[in-house]
Amino acid sequence: MDTEVEHIYASDLMSDVLAFGKPHSLLLTGLATRQSIISAHMAEFVGVVLLRGKVPKDGAEKFAREHRLVLLSTNLDMYDACVRIHAIRKRQRATPPAKPVEQSKEEILLSREFSIQGGDFANAGMVSTEVKSILKKIGLDPLLIRRVAISTYEGEMNVVMHARRGQATLRVTPQMIEVIIEDEGKGIPDVELAMQEGFTTATEEMRALGFGSGMGLPNIKNNSDEMEIESEVGQGTTLRMRFFIK
């Protein structure tokens, strides 16, 4: 519970948490879903504060406990919560602690497979959580692990949201980490288009009403060193991501 907080990140947008949040941040949010907690965990945050008296939903609490993530709830709104933390910060202005970076010198060879169930939100994020803890045990660079965790999470969520089922493979060699996510789903008709930021899977009618959702592929591209997508409509999609170990 007593963990050092280095930054505060105040936002309700989980895409922002994954894209811009700094490691060792504390998230202040009014979004009390399980996905908020998992996003914070993937982005290497120390914890989440739920604002305006919101209560954690759908096993968010259990997830936080299992992954030693601090989960707090307050009746304060985002403005007051920020203000109180500013007041504490002014009082102590502590120098941030040096981050312990444990780099393993041993040669590692590891291969693991996981299955992902489409539409199963109760377990969504469990594969990326598992991948993250395996890589942590090996003792790789936390920033590298974070990039792998975020990319795997985005890939996993795409299977949950758009496919019937899928399989994730994690391979670690002395040079790199490779994550392959294969799914049995609708497939992506135009991969190049789906790679563009702002791409949406919403229908024309829904877009007319201002709705739309993306697939997070640009964020995977930004976080990985190499990324490949193969997709066949009606069959499924294979996403390969590689992360080099320096």
């Binding site: 994954l18 894209a19 201002g210 709705f211 964020n219």
Partner: peptide, 27 residues
């Protein structure tokens, strides 16, 4: 209804995985 292009006051994209396009990720 199918021709209406009004703006719904709803939250869309809160859980979206799509990052906003204007800035590069920090890491």
């Amino acid at each position: 209804f199918s021709r209406c292009k009004g703006e719904f006051i709803h939250d869309v994209g809160m859980l979206s995985l799509e990052p906003p396009k204007e800035r590069k990720p920090l890491f």
